[in-house]
């Protein structure tokens, strides 16, 4: 599971209001290279929740991202930043661990890189 997916996942339990972001408990993290595409990064930047991305990256021991979201000029011209953004968003993989709902504390396990988002019958 990559952080681009973590940035979109929310807790689906019935009645939960504070669904996003899920907290990451990482046990095993891998890095896989992905082709660098600045257009896609700029396109996705508009949809990314920046704080969730920074927190998620820190949970996976990557601390190179700035706390505050960069402005448009940085996005357009700063390739160093784009490389860091690319690495955090698309190349870090959570292989083993769990995702924790911020409100209920429910843990969704991640095994072989696949989060298990199945709910029990009473949670639907």
């Amino acid at each position: 599971m990559r952080l681009i997916v973590h940035n979109m996942l929310s807790c689906n339990i019935k009645g939960v209001v504070n669904k996003f972001p899920l907290r990451i408990e990482a046990e095993k993290v891998t890095v896989k290279e992905v082709d660098f595409n600045p257009d896609f990064l700029r396109y996705m930047f508009a949809k990314i929740d920046w704080k969730a991305l920074v927190d998620g990256a820190r949970s996976m021991e990557y601390t190179e991202l700035p706390d505050n979201a960069p402005d448009t000029t940085t996005l357009e011209s700063d390739e160093t930043f784009l490389r860091k953004f690319h690495h955090a968003l698309l190349e870090l993989h959570l292989e083993e661990g769990s995702l924790v709902c911020p409100e209920t504390g429910r843990k969704f396990s991640v095994s072989k890189g696949i989060p298990n988002m199945l709910l029990h019958e009473d949670e639907v």
Binding site: R2, M8, L9, S10, N12, M117
Partner: peptide, 19 residues
């Protein structure tokens, strides 16, 4: 692609407006 184990009948559990 990234893979998720989930039941679509339980709802998708994704944030608004991201797909």
């Amino acid at each position: 692609g990234d893979l998720l184990l989930g039941d679509m009948g339980q709802g998708l559990g994704l944030r608004s407006g991201v797909i």
